[in-house]
Computed example of a mutant assay.
Amino acid sequence: MTVADPTLEVERALFAEGAPVVIGCDEVGRGAIAGVVAVGVCAIVPGGDAPPAGLRDSKLLSPAKRELIAPLVHEWAAAVAVGEAEPGEVDAHGIIAALGLAARRGLIALHEAGIDVGASTVLLDGSHDWLTPALTSPPSIRVRPKADRDCASVAGASVVAKVHRDALMVADATRWPQFGWDGNKGYGSPAHLAAVAEFGPSPRHRVTWLKLPATADGAPDTTV
């Protein structure tokens, strides 16, 4: 099946309604058991160039292709950033709140890069608005969920976030090689789960997501 390139149809409709900037937003690492959850934010403005050739949602691209496309997204967009929430924040606050924290940090980075984030419309991948609760109340940002891989700004955010997070996991794999993060990127593959059972979790694991043996006091045993 041929997959069409994502377009700026949705973004241009928002520009026609008066939006001065549209920010595509997508998360990576939501279902992992180790590593950060990362949220990419890709800002575009009216009158910009067409999206890079070959741009797709990150899930539709090979790792090598993502590495080629990511710098092109940086060149194409008005600004791009990736926000992160740490494994401990996922444990403490839950994944939905952690997504909001990561996205807010990404938006702050865009603001620091000169983007008028407060006047923007944010396109969220998926049907659930997990961003608005993390924003200052009342938020001036317009958040529109239900964006998908057909939106070029969202696809750009997806690719940049995926390349960023994969690089973090590869770097962490040099310190904790027993978990195979250079291959599984922190997701719960059978080999990864077997390593957790054998060695215990690392400081980069989301311990509340693991089925761990209990200690004498009934708490999970999180020693390494």
Results as ranks from 00 to 15, higher is better:
residue 1 M to R: 13
residue 1 M to W: 09
residue 5 D to C: 10
residue 9 E to K: 09
residue 13 A to L: 02
residue 15 F to T: 03
residue 15 F to H: 09
residue 17 E to M: 10
residue 18 G to C: 02
residue 20 P to C: 09
residue 20 P to N: 09
residue 22 V to F: 06
residue 23 I to M: 06
residue 23 I to C: 05
residue 24 G to A: 08
residue 24 G to N: 10
residue 25 C to R: 01
residue 26 D to E: 06
residue 26 D to S: 04
residue 28 V to L: 11
residue 28 V to G: 13
residue 29 G to K: 12
residue 29 G to L: 12
residue 31 G to T: 04
residue 39 V to T: 01
residue 39 V to W: 03
residue 41 V to K: 02
residue 42 C to V: 02
residue 46 P to D: 11
residue 47 G to N: 10
residue 47 G to W: 05
residue 48 G to I: 12
residue 49 D to K: 14
residue 50 A to C: 10
residue 50 A to Q: 14
residue 50 A to R: 15
residue 54 G to Q: 13
residue 56 R to T: 02
residue 57 D to G: 10
residue 58 S to C: 12
residue 59 K to P: 10
residue 59 K to F: 08
residue 59 K to R: 07
residue 60 L to S: 04
residue 63 P to V: 02
residue 63 P to L: 05
residue 63 P to G: 09
residue 63 P to D: 01
residue 65 K to Y: 00
residue 67 E to Y: 07
residue 72 L to A: 15
residue 74 H to I: 04
residue 79 A to T: 09
residue 79 A to Q: 08
residue 81 A to S: 15
residue 82 V to S: 10
residue 83 G to Q: 04
residue 84 E to H: 14
residue 85 A to K: 09
residue 87 P to G: 11
residue 87 P to H: 11
residue 89 E to P: 12
residue 89 E to M: 14
residue 90 V to D: 05
residue 90 V to P: 11
residue 91 D to W: 09
residue 93 H to Y: 09
residue 93 H to V: 02
residue 95 I to R: 01
residue 98 A to T: 04
residue 99 L to W: 07
residue 101 L to C: 08
residue 102 A to Y: 02
residue 102 A to K: 00
residue 103 A to Y: 02
residue 105 R to V: 00
residue 107 L to R: 08
residue 108 I to S: 12
residue 109 A to T: 04
residue 110 L to F: 01
residue 111 H to V: 00
residue 112 E to R: 15
residue 114 G to S: 08
residue 118 G to F: 05
residue 118 G to T: 11
residue 119 A to I: 02
residue 119 A to R: 15
residue 120 S to H: 08
residue 120 S to T: 04
residue 121 T to F: 01
residue 121 T to L: 02
residue 122 V to R: 07
residue 123 L to G: 05
residue 124 L to T: 12
residue 125 D to F: 01
residue 127 S to A: 14
residue 133 P to M: 07
residue 134 A to H: 01
residue 139 P to Y: 12
residue 139 P to F: 10
residue 141 I to P: 08
residue 141 I to F: 00
residue 141 I to Y: 03
residue 143 V to H: 00
residue 143 V to N: 00
residue 147 A to G: 15
residue 147 A to S: 15
residue 148 D to R: 05
residue 150 D to A: 15
residue 152 A to L: 00
residue 159 V to Q: 05
residue 159 V to R: 07
residue 160 V to L: 00
residue 161 A to C: 11
residue 164 H to K: 05
residue 166 D to L: 13
residue 166 D to N: 13
residue 166 D to K: 10
residue 168 L to C: 13
residue 168 L to R: 15
residue 170 V to C: 10
residue 171 A to Y: 03
residue 171 A to G: 09
residue 171 A to T: 14
residue 172 D to E: 14
residue 173 A to S: 15
residue 175 R to G: 14
residue 176 W to D: 11
residue 176 W to Q: 06
residue 179 F to D: 00
residue 180 G to K: 09
residue 181 W to N: 10
residue 183 G to S: 08
residue 186 G to I: 13
residue 186 G to A: 13
residue 189 S to R: 08
residue 190 P to W: 07
residue 192 H to C: 14
residue 194 A to Q: 13
residue 194 A to G: 06
residue 201 P to E: 08
residue 202 S to M: 00
residue 203 P to S: 12
residue 204 R to P: 04
residue 206 R to L: 09
residue 207 V to A: 06
residue 209 W to A: 14
residue 212 L to N: 13
residue 212 L to E: 11
residue 214 A to R: 15
residue 215 T to G: 07
residue 215 T to S: 07
residue 217 D to C: 04
residue 220 P to N: 11
residue 220 P to G: 05
residue 220 P to K: 07
residue 222 T to D: 09
residue 222 T to N: 10
